[in-house]
């Protein structure tokens, strides 16, 4: 059963002089529990596609359905609420709140969901343990390495119990060993807890870990391959 269903998505950026077609008729179905890489060269539309699926940007034409909800018809405020309840985000530059500790960063999302304090604490601890940071819980981002920060970001993305996690170039700022390590953690969470991950990348080692690889070029899907 697909949890993400995009239909004929186009996105045109127009700066009044040159029209840039970032997405050109992208239709994509992603099922629950998938571990999918969106790949392609720079400017192929990977980030635009993730932004639109994540409700951070709107398509020029086309439709995005998350479950039964057409998110392209939601208002800004509805989208904010929708993202909070349904989508986990992992960013290329980690984007943790620098003044909060690792644990507080993970709890923060649950706080916005008004979860009970005890549940927040328990879940934050178990998630940080799952990403191998149980001994770094009380450190602030600047006291952690890039790889550790990105693992906190993964834990934070999962804290809200999202339907799926979108990760835009999550390994771009990491060295290859750390990048593989992070991917392994994500793959384990995907396998053990049936969490759906969709991530963009152009790193061949990372692509090799994905079970499905969707390749974009000039805003179009040029291949969609399942890997073993």
């Amino acid at each position: 059963m697909s949890i993400i269903n995009t239909h004929d998505l186009t996105k045109i950026y127009n700066d009044n002089t040159v029209e840039v077609r970032a997405l050109n008729g992208v239709s994509l179905k992603i099922d629950k529990g998938e571990f999918t890489a969106i790949v392609g060269p720079s400017g192929s539309g990977k980030t635009t596609l993730l932004n639109i699926i994540g409700g951070l940007d709107s398509p020029s034409t086309g439709q995005v359905k998350i479950g039964d909800i057409d998110i392209t018809s939601l208002s800004d405020n509805q989208l904010i609420d929708f993202r909070l309840k349904n989508i986990g985000f992992v960013f290329q530059a980690y984007n943790l709140i620098p003044v909060l500790t690792a644990k507080e960063n993970v709890e923060f999302i649950m706080l916005m969901q008004n979860r009970p304090k005890a549940e927040m604490e328990e879940r934050a601890q178990s998630l940080l343990k799952a990403v191998g940071l149980e001994d770094q819980m009380h450190k602030r981002p600047r006291e952690m390495s890039g790889g550790q920060q990105q693992r906190v970001a993964v834990a934070r993305a999962l804290a809200s119990k999202p339907k799926f996690v979108l990760a835009d170039e999550p390994t771009a700022n990491l060295d290859s060993k750390t990048a593989i390590n992070l991917l392994d953690i994500m793959a384990t969470l995907n396998k053990d807890e049936d969490i759906t991950f969709i991530f963009s990348t152009h790193d061949q080692k990372v692509i090799g870990r994905a079970r499905r690889v969707v390749t974009l070029e000039d805003g179009k899907i040029v291949s969609d391959v399942l890997q073993n």
Partner: peptide
């Protein structure tokens, strides 16, 4: 800007 963008992305509402 990036931090605020992250907060908006992950679902912090405008009032907050």
């Amino acid at each position: 800007t990036r931090e605020l963008g992250m907060l908006m992305s992950v679902g912090m509402n405008k009032m907050k």
